[in-house]
């Protein structure tokens, strides 16, 4: 099937990497983080890239998922899988409740509101010490096990994270290429025209906002169980910005672009370990340079001329539009 050829390529890459490079730090340790970031970026890209609704507070939903899992398993002895499901339900409900007032806003106003949401969530994590452990964080979070197969090695986590990432990408591709996906893109293109085509834009925005939040929540729970220790630092405003940078770097409105951006921005700090103190500055600079020189993103930006050449070859009359 032509529609999913990119997906099969990506799946092959995910499967082959740990086989070709077994026990490689960059595959099974940094790689797992890259896969986690890819899940988050693909979800955020549905909201930001396709539907055109910016969110500067996405780390909040990642945090709610992570902390729900951590608190329920460490403090109340819940089964991790049940905790994940509850986390997703809780995050979805919160996202649904805040989406109504927030998504009435557009552009800068929406950016400010989501920014506020992210900051509020982070303050709650720090201040509600009795539950969250405050700034010291929460430790001893149990790992997951699949039918008695405990995820106790880096490689096992790689497989689970890889499968989840591929599942997320598959779902995102399916949505984009459907009636719902076209509604999202139409909303981005012209809200008033989308309404006139019979699209309930309010419901569509709410739907994609909740969907992105659910994805972030699932990623948060996995992160919690994989790390076995979490603290509010991982869910700060800077992480929200990092996620936005991933989406922008790869290319807005490209699912593969979001994966690409996530992978690049996960490996970059590893390779530039000497510049650790400047990490946030480097992300800021990347975001600025991208907006000035390649606003459609690296992945999409490099792919467009290539694709144009392909279509040109297929249809010779295609290049003489109108008179």
């Amino acid at each position: 099937m032509k529609r999913l050829s990119g997906f099969y390529l990506l799946a092959a890459l995910v499967v082959l990497l740990p086989i070709i490079f077994p026990d490689n730090y960059y595959v099974t340790v940094v790689g797992v983080t890259a896969l986690l970031h890819a899940i988050l970026a693909v979800g955020l890209n549905l909201l930001m890239g396709y539907a055109g609704q910016i969110s500067l507070g996405h780390a909040a939903f990642f945090g709610i998922g992570a902390y729900t899992s951590a608190i329920l398993t460490t403090r109340y002895g819940w089964d991790p899988w049940a905790a994940i499901v509850v986390g997703i339900a809780l995050t979805g409900s919160i996202a649904f409740l805040v989406s109504r007032p927030i998504l009435r806003l557009k552009g800068h106003y929406l950016a400010m509101a989501t920014l506020g949401l992210g900051i509020i969530a982070n303050i709650v994590l720090v201040q509600a010490g009795d539950f969250t452990g405050g700034p010291d964080g929460l430790g001893d979070i149990p790992t997951l096990s699949l039918f008695g197969w405990a995820l106790d090695t880096d490689l096992r986590w790689y497989w689970v994270m890889g499968a989840t990432m591929l599942g997320t990408v598959w779902i995102a591709l399916n949505i984009i290429d459907s009636r719902s996906g076209r509604a999202l893109r139409a909303l981005h293109g012209s809200e008033v025209a989308a309404e006139m085509m019979g699209i309930n834009t309010t419901a569509t925005k709410t739907g994609v906002f909740v969907l992105a939040a659910l994805t972030a929540s699932l990623a948060g729970s996995l992160f919690s169980h994989q790390q076995s220790f979490i603290s509010p630092d991982s869910f700060s405003f800077f992480f929200s910005i990092e996620l936005v940078t991933m989406v922008v770097l790869g290319g807005m409105a490209s699912t593969y672009g979001a994966v690409f951006g996530a992978v690049v921005l996960t490996f970059l700090p590893e390779l530039l370990v000497v510049f650790e103190d400047f990490e946030v500055m480097i992300f800021g600079a990347i975001l600025m340079l991208m907006m000035i020189f390649l606003p459609q993103g690296i992945f999409v930006g490099l792919q467009t001329p290539f694709r144009r050449r392909l279509t040109r070859r297929e249809s010779p009359i295609a290049d003489t539009p109108g008179e």
Partner: peptide
């Protein structure tokens, strides 16, 4: 008020929203 971020075919397919 075109959807400039979409192809010609996709633009018109959005019009089929209510029929699907």
């Amino acid at each position: 008020q075109m959807f400039f971020n979409m192809s010609v075919l996709d633009n018109v397919m959005v019009g089929c929203h209510l029929r699907t």
